[in-house]
């Protein structure tokens, strides 16, 4: 049994313009000490999927089906009170950009202290020491604990958010675009930190990003999403070196590689389909280029092309792989 496993998760948004499905039958699982990269273009449903599993969807969002099993317990069946022990207690999320959950009028240290008290992580009298220990662990100098979030740089805020997650002793940390707005060097610092924590504390980490490079650098497994659905899911080596889905292949061909600076980049013409007006067949078909007539009619099933390597493309066939 996996630490976290998401099965057939589907989410819809109810808007004035109608109902549309932002996440469609998503499946993945996560083990302690491993990291999963969730990649895809803007609007493909990455954040929605993560908010759904935290049960933090905005009012317009509804989970229409699926299970989110944490240690075998389906979080979607829990009462709101029961859910509290899991949200932040077991699974924490570092939010994308502006949704930053730090309170602007409290010092960073006191916010971490509050989380420690709320989750009774350590006896009350040990709280001050624990704040120092956590900040040290994420690389924030002790002097900064009395400062307010606005006095922190973007990188320090990410570190503080990670310290909050550690304060709750979460076993799973979801980092939504943790490095997108940061400089490359600060990005490298944060990725190093996440990797170190993953190894030292045996954490399971989900990194949500549109940056394939980040995923290739730090993730063990990769799930590529397209238009709310899984396109391809496997360990990182298989996704990057034996990709099967045309979307994955084309994403890779569009990504500059400093080790091959002169190899021609090929963009993917067109843009992702509007979720309220999906093409009848495969949702990538209009941009695919290698699909056939069947692709315009049939929505591809997810098949296992090799052990642990999943793909939703009508052209995909099970493969024999030599190791």
């Amino acid at each position: 049994m996996s630490l976290l496993s998401v099965k057939n998760l589907s989410v819809e948004y109810h808007t004035d313009a109608g109902v549309f499905r932002a996440v469609d039958q998503l499946n993945f699982s996560l083990e302690p000490g491993r990291s999963l990269g969730l990649v895809g273009e803007s609007g493909c449903g990455k954040t929605t999927a993560m908010l759904a599993l935290m049960r933090l969807l905005p009012d317009a969002g509804r989970i229409v089906s699926g299970e989110v099993l944490f240690d075998g317990v389906d979080l979607l069946q829990l009462s709101p009170a029961e859910m509290l022990a899991y949200r932040w207690g077991k699974i924490s999320m570092v939010f994308q950009g502006a949704m930053n959950a730090l309170n602007p009028v409290r010092t960073v240290g006191s916010q971490i202290g509050e989380a420690l008290k709320l989750h009774k992580t350590v006896p009350r009298k040990e709280v001050p020491d624990e704040i120092d220990r956590l900040l040290d662990m994420v690389g924030v100098t002790a002097g900064s604990k009395k400062q307010y979030p606005h006095q922190y740089s973007g990188g320090m805020r990410q570190r503080a958010m990670i310290a909050m997650a550690l304060a709750c002793r979460s076993q799973v940390i979801i980092a939504d675009e943790p490095t997108t707005a940061l400089d490359v060097m600060v990005q490298a610092q944060i990725l190093d930190l996440l990797q170190r924590l993953q190894a030292e504390l045996n954490l399971a980490v989900i990194i949500v990003t549109h940056d394939l490079g980040v995923v290739a650098e730090v993730c063990d497994d990769v799930l590529v999403m397209y238009g709310g659905r899984m396109a391809e899911y496997a360990d990182a080596d298989a996704v990057f070196n034996q990709s099967v889905h045309p979307y994955t292949k084309r994403l890779l061909a569009a990504f500059p590689d400093i080790n091959a600076p002169r190899s021609e980049l090929a963009s993917i013409p067109g843009h992702p389909p509007p979720l309220n007006d999906l093409p009848p067949g495969c949702r990538f078909e209009p941009r695919c280029g290698v699909g056939g007539e069947k692709c315009t009619r049939e929505n591809p099933e997810i098949i296992e092309v090799a052990p642990g390597h999943y793909c939703s493309c009508l052209l995909a066939r099970p493969e024999k792989r030599s190791l």
């Binding site: 990188g155 060097m185 190093d192 394939l212 080596d237 990057f240 080790n259």
Partner: peptide, 25 residues
């Protein structure tokens, strides 16, 4: 050299030692 070493490369087989500079500019 440090900047080069932290540029993410889209291939897990080419992961390399990152020269991560401390602090910010």
């Amino acid at each position: 050299k440090a900047l080069m070493s932290v540029i993410p490369v889209p291939n897990p087989r080419q992961r390399k030692k990152r020269i991560v500079l401390k602090g910010e500019t």
